[in-house]
Amino acid sequence: MSDAPAVLFAATSANKVGSLETGCWWGYEPIIASPKGDKVPIDPKSKQEQYLTSTSRDFLKDDEAMDKLNNSVRVHEVDPNDFVALFVPGGHGIMVDGPKDMKPLVEAFAKQDKLVAAVCHGPGALTEAELNGKPLVKGKKVTGFSNSEEKSFGADKEVPFSLEDRLKERGADYHKGADWSPFVVTDGQLITGQNPQSSQALGKAMADALGAASR
């Protein structure tokens, strides 16, 4: 680890959900941890031209970034003390291994009152986490991939659970914006984004929060 403040990017190790090929949704900064470690699978749909951004194209050309993506560490080997925040990117894969495998990591960051952020399906990794004996999301304003977006994407019959419904079941105060439009919710140290289009706004919200905390 360097002396600079670091954010842990915790991604899925799952490459299937139902009959769909999946993984982490493309378009983020280097992801360095996953349940199984090593290469993080990337959702093939997120590499389609309509989803690629200038940032993700630059990522493809960045050897250092790709090396981190292809050689992630296991989440259970991570020391939360080395990081100032946790970010969980989206993609359907996180619905498979996130709730169970990310639970200790999410709880560790929450107990230290560190920033926890997730986008799209990423909030699925928060659904089993607890704080002080209660669901982490209970009473918290959150967002995440909506039922209507899941249906229009064609994956509503493939996912292991509805993210919107599960968050509500866990006592979250779920909010959503227009389908496929940027929408971010901040509640204390918890920041969530609704869909892939929300990633840039969520990144800015994280940067603003970390900047305010350092002042």
Rank of each mutant, 00 (worst) to 15 (best):
Q200H: 10
D62Q: 11
L8V: 08
F161A: 01
D156E: 15
T127L: 00
V73C: 04
A209W: 07
A6I: 00
Q112N: 11
C120S: 12
L131C: 01
S214H: 13
M66S: 06
F9M: 13
H92N: 13
A108V: 10
G203D: 12
D62S: 15
D173W: 00
K176F: 00
K141V: 07
V159R: 02
Q197Y: 12
D165Q: 15
V159C: 02
A11I: 03
I31G: 00
G37I: 08
D113M: 02
I42F: 03
K176N: 09
K151N: 07
V106C: 02
N15Y: 12
L136D: 02
K140D: 06
K168Y: 07
D62C: 13
P35Y: 06
G154M: 03
P41Y: 09
S152H: 10
K114G: 06
P196M: 05
E169I: 02
E29T: 09
L52Q: 14
N195V: 05
T22K: 02
L20I: 11
G177L: 07
V88H: 02
S56Y: 05
R166Y: 02
P5L: 06
E21Y: 06
D113L: 00
Q189T: 13
K61E: 14
D38T: 11
P160D: 05
A65Y: 05
K68C: 08
